[in-house]
């Protein structure tokens, strides 16, 4: 599995297809986060941006190999493991992005609640920001796993489906990612830091199930 992860990571890095999502995320942070804004709101905003980026990275990693090369690796290691490695690589890439976003917020935001008077406990707030980002990344990877090969095979359906799912799950109140981000923003307004344990507990099984389904399907569809 480590060899497969190294291979997929080298594919991702060498192909330079990671550049557009990273640049877009950097622009999103630069435009959306005001220097000196309240810390918890900024964490929530930065985390919300990682969801579509995770969807995008999942698509990049899943489609990074031409079918002939994928078959060679699949014969050696099994198609399910090859697919799992590509989704894990996307998840690791999105987590790096989330770490970068969290660090940016930690350095530039104002460590106070939204009234700008009461100080925010920085460490718990950063932990809550990271967990929120993790929930968004996991949900994004789940969308990416279900909206690409082998579940949706043609780009004509995969890309719109991925975009729509990313939008809906960012906006709809029932989505765990939305719940985590809302929790950060309302915590800032009410002067509390709440850890997003419940949304995270919702996203983990969703992500595991989606990735497992995609990996099982990878040897059945073609």
């Amino acid at each position: 599995m480590i060899a497969l992860l190294r291979y997929q990571a080298a594919l991702l890095i060498g192909s330079h297809r990671w550049l557009p999502p990273v640049i877009l995320y950097a622009a999103f942070l630069a435009v959306g986060i005001q220097t000196g804004g309240p810390m918890l709101d900024s964490y929530g905003f930065a985390a919300a941006g990682t969801l579509p980026m995770a969807v995008w990275l999942a698509r990049i990693c899943v489609t990074s190999e031409p079918p002939a090369a994928r078959n060679c690796a699949a014969a050696a290691a099994g198609p399910g493991r090859v697919h799992l490695a590509s989704l894990l690589t996307a998840a690791l890439g999105a987590l790096l992005l989330a770490l970068g976003g969290t660090a940016f917020v930690a350095l530039t935001s104002d460590p106070h609640f939204s009234d700008h008077r009461v100080a925010v406990p920085v460490l718990p707030a950063t932990a809550a920001g990271l967990l929120t980002a993790l929930a968004c990344v996991l949900l994004g990877i789940a969308i990416g796993a279900l909206c690409n090969w082998p579940v949706l095979r043609s780009p004509g359906s995969a890309i719109p489906a991925g975009l729509l799912a990313a939008l809906l799950l960012s906006v709809l109140g029932a989505s765990p990612a939305n719940a985590a981000v809302t929790g950060m923003v309302s915590g800032s307004a009410h002067g509390t830091v709440s850890m997003p344990w419940l949304p995270l507990a919702g996203t983990v099984p969703i992500a595991v199930a989606a990735v497992a389904a995609a990996c099982v399907l990878s040897s059945r569809r073609n």
């Binding site: 060899a3 497969l4 190294r6 291979y7 080298a10 594919l11 890095i13 060498g14 192909s15 330079h16 190999e65 031409p66 002939a68 090369a69 078959n71 060679c72 690796a73 699949a74 014969a75 050696a76 290691a77």
Partner: peptide, 25 residues
Amino acid sequence: AYVPERFPAALPFTAAGYLTHLGRI
């Protein structure tokens, strides 16, 4: 191990680099 009929490898590796990756896998 599998050899496809055509190997249009649009991969960002050198020949030796790709083979080393596959050897590790």
